[in-house]
């Protein structure tokens, strides 16, 4: 009994985990965003499931029906879907720009390039520091 009553929620949990796994385990920036939207969609299921009343109908008032499902989760999820698409659009725009700037959408490739940048900074800082020492010695002499 217990398990049957919670069955729907467990499916939600599994979906959620698949989405979450795609986000954190994959390195491709687009795939991460797909994972993120699956993760979010599964949360929508969580909300909508809790609003369901067995035997009820959609919450549009009509004289022929007495029992309605809970409208509040629906409202919240409408908002959440919109937030989700906004985030996806923003993420994709960033992916396009990242590809233009780095020529790759794999996280590891990008990291290598960023590390190179940082290495250059490092060399510049210490290389130039030595230069100034030389410069000072020149002046002392």
């Amino acid at each position: 009994m217990n398990i049957i009553g919670l069955y729907n929620y467990w499916i939600v949990v599994v979906l959620m985990l698949i989405g979450f796994f795609i986000v954190i385990a994959h390195e491709n920036l687009i795939k991460k965003l797909v994972g993120l939207s699956i993760f979010q969609t599964s949360v929508f299921f969580l909300y909508i499931s809790m609003g369901k009343v067995a035997g009820a109908t959609a919450p549009i008032l009509d004289e022929n029906y007495q029992l309605y499902s809970n409208p509040l989760p629906h409202v919240l999820i409408l908002t959440a879907i919109v937030v989700g698409i906004a985030t996806t659009a923003m993420g994709l725009a960033l992916v396009v720009r990242i590809y233009e700037a780095y020529g790759s959408i794999e996280e590891s490739d990008i990291q290598v390039q960023d590390n190179n940048d940082r290495l250059e900074d490092y060399l510049e800082a210490y290389g130039r520091k030595n230069d100034t020492h030389l410069f000072n010695q020149d002046k002392d002499e």
């Binding site: 687009i30 609003g51 009820a56 919109v82 396009v96």
Partner: peptide, 30 residues
């Protein structure tokens, strides 16, 4: 699950706009 409005939105956003944006991005990246 009786969420008609949500279903409507998910169909138009998730299956429509969001897929479209992904495809537009894929045109630009590998």
């Amino acid at each position: 699950l009786d969420a008609v409005d949500v279903a409507f939105t998910e169909a138009s956003v998730g299956a429509g706009i969001s897929t479209l944006l992904f495809l537009a991005t894929l045109k630009l990246v590998p």
